[in-house]
């Protein structure tokens, strides 16, 4: 498996990250090393093995479905970098031509 510029661009887009050209060269190098390193897992045959997904054995532990007010609107907005008294604010998404 070879990680190239095209794949890194795609991953950066999916990850919502920007890299400068020199950073990109570095991340291509690092990812190639990391992918080579984890490629070792292909040596282990896994035919017929179910993936391990849940780490605890207990299933269907039920509780009442109660509505609780634990955080107020004011609190929820408190840490926002940009907000008014009711909403989080972002740049306009739909713009007039």
């Amino acid at each position: 498996m070879k990680v190239d510029k095209q794949l890194v661009d795609k991953l950066a887009n999916l990850s919502k990250l920007n890299f400068t050209e020199s950073e990109e060269q570095e991340i291509i190098k690092d990812l190639n090393k990391m992918v080579d390193f984890v490629d070792k897992l292909k040596e282990i045959p896994v035919d017929g093995v179910e993936p391990l997904i849940y780490m605890i054995d207990e299933t269907n532990v039920m509780r009442e479905d109660e509505v609780k007010m634990e955080i107020t609107k004011e609190e929820a907005l408190k840490n926002a970098p940009l907000a008014d008294s009711d909403y989080f604010k972002v740049p306009k998404v739909l713009k007039k031509k």
Binding site: L11, L14, S15, M34, L41, L52
Partner: peptide
Amino acid sequence: MLGTFVLSSGYYDAYYTHAQK
């Protein structure tokens, strides 16, 4: 970036599911 790679379409089964197994 590595996590996005192992979860991305085309690599998911070969890396992520394989590692879970």
